[in-house]
């Protein structure tokens, strides 16, 4: 496993992209990494395309933004959004996307075409995160399924992610916490298949 991970997180405002970033960040800190994580707040969050840069490293990080061609993973809550950021991927990088589209625009492209564009990349994985989230206990845990899938590509302890989720969702009650933990587990299994 590497000493450094550059991860592009994408989706649509409201899909929980920033929560993904928060869980991974807290877990990475527990495992002794330093990090930089750039978010977009304000107007862009209102149902628009959302992008977060997450950089995790054992050594100092200069730039908040990931250079094009440096990302190990593009992790997306939504398939069309994932395709916007392919040029951030390093040649051996992987794109991981949830399969279901978020259609809040009139000209959303053909979903088969979007999926096949993802599948034609050198390395990619499409996950039916909605189905797994439902299995986990709440449809709101789609983003945590994706956390699980991402975690298989990183040297971060499973216990650290569990603790991070417990901290982050402490005000939401036991039921939500346990659904989110289930979602991570299901995501880990799905993330390992390739």
């Amino acid at each position: 496993m590497a000493e450094k991970y550059d991860i592009i997180l994408s989706g649509v405002g409201g899909q929980g992209v920033l929560s993904v970033a928060a869980v991974i960040s807290i877990a990475a800190m527990k495992d002794g990494y330093t990090l930089r994580q750039s978010e977009v707040h304000g107007m862009a969050q209102r149902g628009g395309a959302v992008l977060a840069h997450m950089r995790i490293s054992r050594t100092d990080i200069s730039s908040d933004l990931i250079p094009k061609g440096m990302a190990d993973v593009v992790l997306s809550m939504e398939p069309m959004e994932s395709l916007r950021y392919v040029d951030y991927l390093k040649p051996e990088g992987i794109l991981i996307s949830a399969s279901a589209p978020y259609e809040n625009i009139p000209d959303y492209p053909d979903l088969h075409d979007i999926h096949s564009r993802i599948e034609n990349l050198k390395s990619s994985l499409i996950i039916d995160a909605k189905k797994l989230a439902k299995e986990a206990g709440t449809m709101k845990s789609v983003n945590m399924v994706m956390v699980g899938a991402l975690s298989t590509r990183m040297d971060i302890r499973e216990e650290s992610i569990v603790e991070a989720i417990k901290e982050l969702f402490s005000s939401k009650g036991e039921k939500i916490i346990s659904a989110n933990l289930n979602a991570v587990l299901l995501g880990r299994t799905a993330g390992k298949i390739q």
Partner: peptide, 15 residues
């Protein structure tokens, strides 16, 4: 860097 899959995507402005 990787190429080939992007381009020709409709924008998704905030709303």
């Amino acid at each position: 860097k990787q190429t080939g899959a992007g381009g020709d995507l409709p924008g998704r402005p905030p709303q």
